[in-house]
Simulated assay, not measured.
Amino acid sequence: MQSPLPGAANPSSKTHNGPNRKGLLVRLTSGAGSESWGEVAPLPGRSRESLEEAGAAVAKILPSLVGLDLAPSFQGWTAPNVLKGLPSSCQFGFEQAIFSLAAADESVPLSKWFREDSRGQVPINALLAGSKEEVLAQARERRREGYEAFKLKIDTTPVDQGTKLIEEVRSAIGADAELRLDANRAWDFDTAVQFLSRVEDQNIAYVEEPLADPVLLKRLGQATTVPIALDESIVEILEQSCSLEEYAFARAAILKPTLIGGMAVTLDLAERFVNIGVEPVITSCFETEVGHAGLVSLAAAISGSGWASGLDTLRFFDPGLSPAPSRAAYHVSLCEAPEISRLARIV
């Protein structure tokens, strides 16, 4: 699939590469006649694997899914060896398709398949992107629409301009709205202290990954009253098998299943963060509505999470051009031999 994004949006200069979001869609069917979809879409600049590498992994794994047993609930799921060690985006896409198929066979929503007491609604934060004028216009419009949480990227903004913009955004959304910042590891320690000290009176919910050197995050948290959130550090925590207790200083953990190893890992990690008092925030990597649907189900299934999720990304796709399930890249039936078709191109 290839789904265009508006060039003017440029939601993240470090993670969005070019005008199109490219990936693969996986379609599964069961012997009971159910159908499901999963999205495999490595994020340029953040994913370890390329789209070509993900595609090769998808093609290799498809034949092994024939005859796969489906669990009646997530609690009864045991991952088969064939699904272990996949590139992260592939893990997410295959798990989304398999779990959705299992839920369909049980005639329950995916969120309820994960957890019977999952929430019926998932609040999201408004993502503010573009020029100063565009950001302020978006902030006012989203507030009128009823958004209560907002996320502002500040990684490319000089200190003086950035602090002024934050003040203006706060004025636009009101004192009671939640305001989150994302610095994408843009600052050294002294710059971070300088910047954050100037916005301590703006009631910032948290700032994501402000430091180029993440080893200093805990120290920064002691030097400012602005809470810290983990994002890029999550992958490193998993790769290095770090103890989560070392990161209990954080206010929130930004969990992106496409990057951190899929749905099962995300659910486990979310519960572990909850247990140490860190709020998990399920967040999109600019998936299309196929992957987005799975992320919403994940967010609904996390226990005790009332915070807004980072899922306000579908707005950045050109209207009418997001891929429909009928434009699948691959199709495999769990009760028949797989059929691999061409990669769909959405134009």
Rank of each mutant, 00 (worst) to 15 (best):
G320Q: 11
P6F: 09
V281I: 15
P214N: 09
L43P: 03
L43Y: 08
E336R: 15
Q161F: 01
G76M: 11
A205Q: 10
F249T: 08
R180V: 06
P44K: 03
R185W: 07
E289V: 05
P325D: 07
L244C: 08
H331S: 12
S36H: 05
F273A: 07
L136S: 11
F74S: 12
R185V: 01
A186S: 15
M1D: 00
E95F: 04
E167W: 00
R251S: 15
S284V: 14
R342S: 13
L255R: 10
I340W: 05
L28P: 01
A8M: 07
T313D: 00
T288F: 05
A54G: 03
G262S: 10
D312K: 05
S89A: 15
S243M: 11
I98D: 03
P158Q: 08
L269D: 04
S34Y: 00
R185G: 04
V332A: 15
R327H: 14
E49D: 13
Q96A: 07
A223P: 01
P158A: 07
E236T: 15
G7K: 13
S131C: 09
R142M: 11
K22G: 02
T156K: 06
D188R: 11
V296W: 02
Y330Q: 05
L179M: 03
R272D: 10
V235G: 00
P42Y: 12
A324G: 04
W187R: 14
L343W: 09
A79V: 15
L51M: 06
R119Y: 09
S34H: 07
A103K: 10
T157R: 12
R21M: 13
F249I: 08
I276R: 12
A175K: 14
L230V: 10
L62R: 09
S171N: 09
G310E: 03
A293W: 06
C335D: 13
W113K: 08
V215P: 00
L211H: 02
R170K: 14
G7Q: 13
P109V: 07
V169R: 04
S12C: 12
G93H: 03
A248M: 12
R21Y: 10
T288C: 13
V58K: 02
E246R: 14
K22Y: 03
A248R: 15
W113Q: 05
T191S: 15
G76H: 14
A324L: 13
T225N: 11
D182C: 11
E287M: 08
L321G: 00
G146T: 08
S64A: 12
L28F: 15
E116W: 08
V347R: 11
I237G: 07
M1T: 02
P280E: 09
I124G: 02
A137G: 00
D318C: 05
V135T: 11
G45Q: 06
D231M: 11
A177V: 04
Q138F: 06
I234G: 04
G45V: 07
L298H: 01
L43E: 08
S341T: 10
G146M: 10
L244P: 03
L216W: 02
I276P: 04
R342T: 11
M1R: 01
W113V: 06
E106Q: 15
A172F: 02
V278Q: 05
E106P: 02
S284I: 13
I173M: 03
N10W: 09
A103W: 05
S303M: 04
E134Y: 01
I234K: 07
T266Y: 09
G310Q: 05
Q194P: 00
